[in-house]
Computed example of a mutant assay.
Amino acid sequence: MNIIKLGATSSTNDFLKDLLAKQFVENFTVVVAEHQTKGKGQMGAEWNVESGKNLTCSVLVRDLLLDIQAIFHLNVAVAVSIIEGLEEFAIGGLAIKWPNDILAESKKIGGILIENSIKRNGEIFSIVGIGLNVNQEYFENLPKASSLYAICGRSFDKEAVMLAILGNLKRNLSLLQAKEYGLLWQSYDNRLFKKGIPMPFEANNGSHFMGIIQGVTPNGKLEVLLEDDSITTFDIKEVKLLY
């Protein structure tokens, strides 16, 4: 495993993309930075964290996905790998909030940003960005954010946490390569936040409704049982879970 350690960079995803444009980069190369000046989240949102306190890293995954339709399987494998890595440190109340938030005790402690590119020969390159709040104590004006330190009351070795996650990721990517999707999806489904519980939602037009999360489709849409007993699927940013 090739690990590139940086003091600071605008974004570990961008650093890895730039490196990939200039030279050959071996599969599972990892870029980790103590600080990101322009960290990114889903749909262009910013990911701002306290310098030196948290884990921000990106992993190159190549020669794995052969079908553009299989892209969300990678999201599933990454989310499950983070949860399994954190379970090694006895972190309680872990869950995956659709599509890519990592929660502990119903607070957001991490997120995933996967950026895919398709080459002319059809090969899919994926850059897996992982942001995890590890030793940060305070989150001003972010009532739903937390960290491993805030939840457990102790500091963590960031590199040990990263290596635990990467170890699980390598194993789960082997399952993905073998097309053992069922095992990964079962783990993802079992950890899905608020699944099977009546919850309020907000649609992108501002309207509110009640629904029960049933699961996630293979292409990454959220399945929700509505009050009229119909099941509707929602894409990213089409609906927000209120909790």
Rank of each mutant, 00 (worst) to 15 (best):
5 K>V: 05
5 K>E: 10
7 G>K: 11
7 G>L: 01
11 S>C: 07
13 N>G: 07
14 D>G: 01
16 L>Q: 13
19 L>R: 14
20 L>I: 08
21 A>I: 06
21 A>S: 15
26 E>T: 15
28 F>M: 12
29 T>A: 09
34 E>M: 09
35 H>C: 06
40 K>Q: 08
42 Q>W: 01
47 W>P: 09
49 V>R: 14
50 E>H: 08
50 E>W: 01
53 K>I: 05
54 N>C: 02
56 T>N: 09
59 V>K: 09
61 V>E: 10
65 L>I: 15
66 L>V: 12
67 D>M: 02
68 I>Y: 03
69 Q>F: 01
73 H>Y: 07
73 H>N: 15
77 A>T: 11
78 V>Y: 04
78 V>S: 09
79 A>Y: 01
79 A>L: 03
83 I>W: 04
85 G>D: 13
86 L>C: 04
86 L>R: 08
87 E>C: 03
88 E>A: 02
91 I>A: 02
92 G>K: 14
92 G>H: 06
97 K>S: 06
97 K>V: 05
99 P>Q: 13
100 N>G: 03
102 I>P: 13
102 I>Q: 14
105 E>C: 06
106 S>W: 01
109 I>W: 01
109 I>P: 13
112 I>K: 04
115 E>D: 14
118 I>M: 12
119 K>C: 02
120 R>K: 14
120 R>P: 02
121 N>Q: 05
123 E>V: 11
124 I>S: 04
125 F>L: 14
126 S>T: 14
127 I>T: 15
127 I>E: 12
128 V>L: 12
130 I>V: 15
131 G>F: 06
134 V>G: 13
135 N>H: 04
135 N>Q: 08
135 N>P: 04
136 Q>G: 06
137 E>N: 08
138 Y>I: 15
140 E>S: 11
143 P>F: 02
143 P>A: 01
148 L>D: 08
148 L>T: 13
149 Y>Q: 12
152 C>W: 00
153 G>Y: 02
154 R>P: 04
154 R>V: 05
155 S>C: 03
156 F>T: 12
156 F>V: 11
157 D>P: 06
160 A>K: 14
162 M>L: 09
162 M>H: 03
164 A>M: 04
166 L>V: 07
166 L>I: 12
169 L>R: 10
171 R>F: 00
171 R>C: 02
172 N>R: 13
181 Y>M: 04
181 Y>F: 14
182 G>D: 12
182 G>W: 02
183 L>V: 14
183 L>M: 06
185 W>S: 07
185 W>M: 12
188 Y>A: 08
188 Y>V: 09
189 D>E: 15
190 N>C: 01
193 F>C: 15
193 F>I: 15
196 G>E: 13
198 P>R: 15
201 F>C: 11
202 E>V: 06
204 N>F: 03
206 G>D: 14
207 S>W: 01
214 Q>V: 10
217 T>G: 07
225 L>F: 00
228 D>G: 05
228 D>T: 09
229 D>H: 11
230 S>N: 15
235 D>Y: 01
236 I>Q: 08
236 I>D: 06
238 E>P: 10
238 E>K: 13
239 V>A: 03
242 L>C: 09
242 L>F: 00
243 Y>M: 05
